[in-house]
Amino acid sequence: MKKTIFLVVILIVFTGCKNESKAPISGEEEHDQIDVRELSGNFIYFDDAGVLQTKSELFGVVEDEKAQELIKRAEPLKDQPTDEVNVTLKVKVTKKPKHEEGWENRVEIIDIITVSKVDEKNSKVIKLKSQE
Rank of each mutant, 00 (worst) to 15 (best):
residue 100 E to R: 02
residue 99 H to R: 05
residue 73 R to N: 09
residue 77 L to T: 03
residue 68 Q to K: 13
residue 92 K to V: 07
residue 96 K to C: 06
residue 64 D to M: 11
residue 115 V to C: 03
residue 64 D to H: 11
residue 106 R to F: 07
residue 102 G to D: 00
residue 80 Q to H: 14
residue 113 I to W: 04
residue 106 R to I: 14
residue 100 E to C: 05
residue 74 A to N: 00
residue 79 D to T: 09
residue 80 Q to E: 15
residue 81 P to I: 08
residue 83 D to R: 03
residue 87 V to N: 01
residue 84 E to P: 04
residue 86 N to Y: 14
residue 95 K to M: 07
residue 106 R to D: 04
residue 96 K to M: 14
residue 97 P to A: 11
residue 66 K to M: 11
residue 90 K to D: 14
residue 81 P to V: 10
residue 112 I to L: 03
residue 77 L to D: 02
residue 113 I to A: 01
residue 110 I to N: 02
residue 81 P to M: 13
residue 98 K to Y: 01
residue 64 D to V: 05
residue 103 W to H: 04
residue 83 D to I: 03
residue 77 L to E: 02
residue 113 I to T: 01
residue 81 P to L: 12
residue 94 T to I: 10
residue 103 W to K: 08
residue 86 N to D: 10
residue 102 G to M: 05
residue 81 P to C: 06
residue 69 E to A: 13
residue 79 D to Q: 07
residue 106 R to V: 09
residue 70 L to N: 02
residue 76 P to A: 04
residue 77 L to Y: 14
residue 114 T to A: 02
residue 76 P to N: 08
residue 81 P to D: 12
residue 64 D to L: 14
residue 98 K to A: 00
residue 80 Q to S: 13
residue 81 P to E: 11
residue 103 W to C: 03
residue 88 T to A: 15
residue 87 V to H: 07
residue 70 L to K: 03
residue 86 N to K: 15
residue 110 I to V: 07
residue 82 T to A: 09
residue 81 P to N: 09
residue 93 V to A: 08
residue 67 A to R: 06
residue 111 D to P: 07
residue 97 P to Y: 12
residue 107 V to F: 01
residue 80 Q to K: 15
residue 116 S to L: 04
residue 98 K to D: 06
residue 65 E to G: 06
residue 74 A to I: 04
residue 111 D to T: 06
residue 99 H to D: 02
residue 96 K to Y: 05
residue 87 V to D: 03
residue 94 T to E: 11
residue 91 V to C: 11
residue 89 L to P: 02
residue 99 H to A: 08
residue 106 R to H: 01
residue 102 G to Q: 09
residue 87 V to F: 13
residue 73 R to G: 02
residue 66 K to G: 03
residue 76 P to L: 14
residue 87 V to I: 12
residue 79 D to C: 01
residue 89 L to R: 03
residue 79 D to G: 15
residue 79 D to L: 15
residue 69 E to F: 10
residue 108 E to C: 01
residue 69 E to R: 06
residue 83 D to E: 11
residue 96 K to S: 13
residue 110 I to A: 04
residue 78 K to R: 15
residue 97 P to E: 10
residue 93 V to S: 06
residue 65 E to F: 07
residue 94 T to M: 09
residue 65 E to S: 15
residue 100 E to P: 01
residue 105 N to A: 06
residue 101 E to L: 08
residue 92 K to L: 10
residue 85 V to C: 05
residue 103 W to L: 06
residue 77 L to Q: 02
residue 84 E to A: 06
residue 81 P to F: 12
residue 83 D to W: 12
residue 89 L to C: 03
residue 86 N to S: 15
residue 103 W to F: 14
residue 106 R to S: 07
residue 99 H to K: 09
residue 76 P to Q: 04
residue 98 K to M: 05
residue 114 T to M: 04
residue 113 I to H: 08
residue 93 V to R: 08
residue 89 L to N: 04
residue 93 V to I: 06
residue 73 R to C: 07
